[in-house]
Simulated scan of single mutants.
Amino acid sequence: MNDMNEKETEYSAELVDRIRQIKHVALDMDGTIYKGSTLFPFTIAFLRKMKELGIGYSFLTNNPSKSMADYLEHLAKMGIVATESEFYTSAQATIDYMHVHHPECKRLFILGTPSMTKEFEDAGFVSTEDSPEDEPDAVIVSFDMSLVYSRLCRAAWWINQRKLYIATNPDRVCPTDKPLVLVDCGSICSSLTQATGRDPDVVIGKPDPRMLDGIMERHGLKPSQVAMVGDRVYTDILMAQRAKTLSVLVLSGETTYGAALSVNPRPDIIAQDLKEFQQLIELAYG
């Protein structure tokens, strides 16, 4: 799949023409541009080439455990200089959703990291304590790497009291380069479903197309001008398909080639990694 002559026959003229229309690339982060704390060797070259071609890019992530400042620092340590305007996280998407659809909800019981909780507080929300007397308007469940059992039980209690129940993202696990499984928001919600009999009222983040809609609104783009690149079928690719943007699955993270072929509908492009997608863009720009 790495030979450019093979690519010319592998991809249809229609697809190459569609790639040529791309003005912006939305990039998943963990599993796509890096894995855990390890930057992929092709990432910086990809970003540099996009700038050379006049193609913008944004970083999208379902991982809300870090604040915007945390992510900027995380990328800077890897050698990627980014700005806040190039980011959109599921925490930000959840905050936007709450402001638009539930402006009456000000008090939140949050299962999330301290940095994510601070983002909500900075956006005007009040984070309630682990107490039956400190009643919230809604429960927010996220990728909580600081999860405390008593707070999980308190969340279940408020969910049983029919409070609005929002999940920031559906991911079951978070990619990592460490020898362990990082239990993500979807798995935490599964435990709450077993305990309460309730699923979240709303699940924000990929594959919700509103994350890509926000990117398009910000840059004045049409779906045909955006490519969504990620390593997960059930978040990145499904979101791209729902938003009607170009869907690009990279195999540098969670999904295997065999699993990718079993998906219906399949991604528009299945590439080994960003380097291979860059080669295809260069072919399209000829």
Results as ranks from 00 to 15, higher is better:
33 I>W: 04
33 I>R: 03
34 Y>S: 08
35 K>M: 13
35 K>W: 13
37 S>I: 13
37 S>Y: 14
38 T>F: 12
39 L>S: 01
39 L>V: 10
39 L>A: 03
39 L>K: 00
39 L>M: 09
40 F>I: 09
40 F>Q: 05
41 P>W: 11
41 P>D: 11
41 P>A: 09
42 F>H: 13
42 F>G: 04
43 T>N: 06
44 I>K: 12
44 I>M: 10
46 F>C: 09
47 L>F: 02
47 L>R: 01
48 R>G: 09
48 R>C: 05
48 R>Y: 05
49 K>H: 07
50 M>Q: 08
50 M>T: 00
50 M>K: 00
50 M>L: 15
52 E>F: 08
52 E>K: 11
52 E>L: 11
54 G>W: 00
54 G>V: 02
55 I>A: 02
55 I>R: 00
56 G>D: 03
56 G>T: 05
56 G>H: 08
56 G>M: 09
57 Y>D: 06
57 Y>Q: 04
57 Y>H: 12
58 S>D: 04
61 T>K: 06
61 T>L: 06
61 T>F: 02
61 T>Q: 02
62 N>P: 02
62 N>I: 09
62 N>C: 05
62 N>V: 07
62 N>E: 10
63 N>M: 00
63 N>R: 03
63 N>E: 03
63 N>C: 04
63 N>F: 02
63 N>V: 03
64 P>L: 09
64 P>H: 11
65 S>I: 06
65 S>F: 10
65 S>G: 12
66 K>M: 15
66 K>I: 04
66 K>F: 14
66 K>D: 10
67 S>C: 06
68 M>L: 15
69 A>I: 10
69 A>G: 08
70 D>W: 08
70 D>T: 01
70 D>K: 04
70 D>L: 06
71 Y>V: 04
71 Y>Q: 07
72 L>Y: 07
72 L>K: 12
73 E>R: 15
73 E>V: 15
73 E>S: 14
73 E>Q: 15
75 L>Q: 10
75 L>S: 12
75 L>K: 08
75 L>R: 03
76 A>M: 14
76 A>C: 12
76 A>W: 14
77 K>S: 12
77 K>D: 11
77 K>W: 11
78 M>V: 01
79 G>C: 11
79 G>M: 10
79 G>Y: 10
79 G>T: 10
80 I>F: 02
80 I>L: 10
81 V>T: 14
81 V>P: 13
81 V>Y: 14
82 A>Q: 09
82 A>T: 09
82 A>F: 07
83 T>N: 13
85 S>D: 14
85 S>P: 09
85 S>Y: 10
86 E>R: 08
86 E>I: 07
88 Y>K: 04
88 Y>W: 12
88 Y>A: 06
89 T>S: 11
89 T>R: 00
89 T>I: 00
89 T>G: 01
90 S>I: 01
91 A>G: 13
92 Q>C: 11
92 Q>P: 09
94 T>V: 08
94 T>M: 05
94 T>Q: 00
